[in-house]
Amino acid sequence: MRRHLRAYYSPAAYLFTRKFICEQNIANFKRLLADTNEPSLLRTLRGLLAANRRELALLQAEREWS
């Protein structure tokens, strides 16, 4: 499906959209982390937060190199 979407959007628009989604996810995961005390949920949210931070860093690096 990603190839299909890229046919309609320029690479810059795709990177901007992914960057926006990662930033929103990071903000939401931080908010949820502050509101919970359940160990398994904390572990899951920390993993999701780390994954989105990594993806955001990769997107920013890709934008700088392109």
Score class of each variant (00 low, 15 high):
M1R: 13
R3T: 10
R3M: 01
R3Y: 11
H4P: 00
H4C: 05
H4W: 09
H4Y: 08
L5N: 09
L5A: 13
L5E: 12
R6Y: 13
R6M: 12
A7E: 11
A7W: 09
A7H: 11
A7N: 05
Y8A: 12
Y8V: 08
Y8Q: 10
Y8S: 14
Y9E: 06
Y9T: 01
S10K: 06
P11W: 02
P11S: 03
P11L: 02
A12D: 06
A12K: 08
A12R: 07
A13C: 08
A13S: 14
A13D: 15
Y14I: 04
Y14L: 04
Y14N: 01
Y14V: 05
F16S: 11
F16P: 00
T17F: 11
T17Q: 05
R18L: 05
K19V: 04
K19D: 14
F20T: 03
I21T: 07
I21A: 05
C22V: 02
C22Q: 11
E23D: 15
E23F: 08
Q24N: 13
N25P: 01
I26F: 04
I26T: 10
A27D: 03
N28V: 04
N28Q: 13
F29I: 10
K30N: 12
K30W: 01
K30G: 02
K30S: 08
R31H: 11
R31P: 00
R31E: 14
R31I: 04
R31Y: 06
L32A: 13
L33V: 06
L33M: 14
L33N: 13
A34Y: 03
A34G: 09
A34W: 02
D35S: 09
T36Y: 02
T36Q: 01
T36K: 03
N37A: 12
E38R: 12
E38T: 07
P39F: 07
S40R: 10
L41E: 15
L41M: 13
L42E: 14
R43C: 08
R43L: 12
T44K: 15
T44A: 15
T44P: 03
L45I: 05
L45W: 04
R46G: 11
R46W: 03
R46V: 01
G47F: 01
G47W: 02
L48C: 11
L48N: 15
L48K: 08
L49H: 02
L49Y: 02
L49D: 06
A50P: 09
A50Q: 10
A50D: 11
A50F: 10
A51T: 02
A51K: 07
A51N: 06
N52P: 00
N52T: 02
N52W: 00
R53A: 02
R53I: 05
R54Q: 11
E55M: 06
E55Y: 14
E55C: 01
L56E: 13
L56P: 08
L56T: 03
L56H: 14
A57T: 09
L58A: 12
L58W: 10
L58H: 12
L58Q: 15
Q60T: 05
Q60L: 05
Q60N: 14
A61Q: 10
A61N: 07
E62A: 10
E62K: 08
E64M: 07
W65V: 06
W65R: 10
